[in-house]
Simulated assay, not measured.
Amino acid sequence: MQKELTVGEVARRAGVAVSTLHFYERRGLIRSNRTVGNQRRYGRDVLRRIAVIRIAQEVGIPLAAIAAALDSLPDGRTPTRQDWAALSTAWRDDLDRRIRQLTDLRDGLTDCIGCGCMSIDRCPLRNPGDRLGEQGSGARRLAPRAG
Rank of each mutant, 00 (worst) to 15 (best):
S19P: 03
T20F: 03
T20W: 01
T20L: 08
L21W: 01
L21K: 07
H22L: 14
F23W: 09
Y24G: 08
Y24Q: 12
E25C: 03
E25V: 04
E25T: 03
R26D: 15
R27A: 11
R27F: 00
R27P: 07
G28M: 12
G28C: 11
G28Q: 05
L29W: 00
I30P: 05
I30F: 00
I30Y: 00
R31G: 07
R31Y: 00
R31S: 14
S32I: 04
S32Q: 05
S32N: 10
S32W: 02
N33R: 15
N33P: 00
N33Y: 11
R34M: 09
R34C: 04
T35N: 08
V36W: 08
V36S: 15
G37Q: 11
G37P: 01
Q39L: 14
Q39I: 04
R40H: 01
R41T: 12
Y42D: 08
Y42F: 13
R44V: 13
D45S: 13
V46M: 04
V46H: 01
V46P: 02
V46L: 06
V46G: 05
V46S: 09
L47E: 10
L47G: 07
R48T: 14
R48W: 00
I50L: 09
A51Q: 13
V52D: 12
V52L: 15
I53F: 03
I53C: 13
I53V: 14
I55H: 09
A56G: 08
A56S: 14
A56D: 02
Q57S: 07
Q57C: 10
V59R: 07
G60K: 03
G60Q: 07
G60T: 10
G60M: 05
G60E: 07
I61H: 02
I61R: 00
I61W: 00
P62I: 04
P62D: 09
A64T: 14
A65F: 01
A65H: 13
A65P: 01
A65M: 11
I66Y: 07
I66C: 04
A67P: 01
A69N: 06
A69T: 06
A69F: 06
L70D: 09
L70P: 12
D71Q: 13
D71Y: 06
S72M: 06
S72C: 06
L73N: 10
P74H: 03
D75N: 13
R77G: 00
T78H: 04
T80Q: 02
T80Y: 02
T80L: 01
T80M: 03
R81N: 09
R81V: 12
Q82Y: 00
D83K: 03
D83W: 01
D83P: 05
D83T: 05
W84K: 02
W84C: 13
W84I: 03
A85H: 08
A86L: 11
A86V: 08
A86C: 06
A86G: 14
A86M: 09
L87G: 05
S88W: 04
S88L: 09
T89F: 00
T89N: 02
W91R: 08
W91I: 03
W91T: 04
W91F: 15
R92Q: 14
D93I: 02
D94P: 01
D94A: 15
L95Y: 12
L95H: 10
L95D: 01
R97C: 02
R97F: 02
R98M: 12
R98I: 04
I99K: 05
I99M: 10
I99D: 01
R100A: 14
R100H: 12
R100K: 10
R100M: 04
Q101L: 11
Q101F: 12
L102E: 10
L102P: 02
